[in-house]
């Protein structure tokens, strides 16, 4: 089964670029990626640019509306994701807990819909 790990953080939390802590933090990501590849669970994973680059789009009354900013103004923002292929939720939680941001942010783990799930 595929699971998406959504990485949420609060603005300003976590190590700042240029500090030794930031170096260790980035190395944490590289180490986690190595484990994911070694265990054959990694399908994809990316960080997202900041929410100041976000644009929200919707169509209302046939008209495309674009708005500057994220879908919802919340304290915790979506900052990146991983897509894992693993056996069950326990395995997905285990790999999600290796994402270094887990130490100060929150990782939401969601199973990905499969063809047999549509309509359920």
């Amino acid at each position: 089964m595929q699971y998406m790990a959504l990485i949420y953080t609060e603005e300003g939390k976590g190590p700042k670029p240029g500090t030794p802590e930031f170096g260790a933090f980035m190395k944490g990501y590289m180490d986690a990626n190595e484990v994911y590849k070694r265990d054959g669970v990694l399908i994809a994973g990316d960080g997202l640019k900041g929410i100041d680059t976000a644009t929200s789009v919707r169509i209302r009354g046939g008209k495309t509306e674009t708005m500057d900013g994220p879908f919802a103004e919340t304290k915790e923002r979506l900052g990146g994701y991983y897509l894992f292929e693993c056996e069950d939720l326990d395995a997905a939680i285990k790999y999600a807990a290796m994402i270094p941001t887990v130490a100060f942010g929150t990782i939401e783990v969601r199973p990905v819909m499969m063809p047999e799930d549509y309509g359920k």
């Binding site: 089964m1 056996e87 326990d90 199973p111 359920k120």
Partner: peptide
């Protein structure tokens, strides 16, 4: 069922 919580006793580290 849908998130596939496994029907097992946990591993020693858990």
């Amino acid at each position: 069922a849908r998130a596939r919580i496994p029907f097992v006793t946990p591993a020693p580290d858990q």
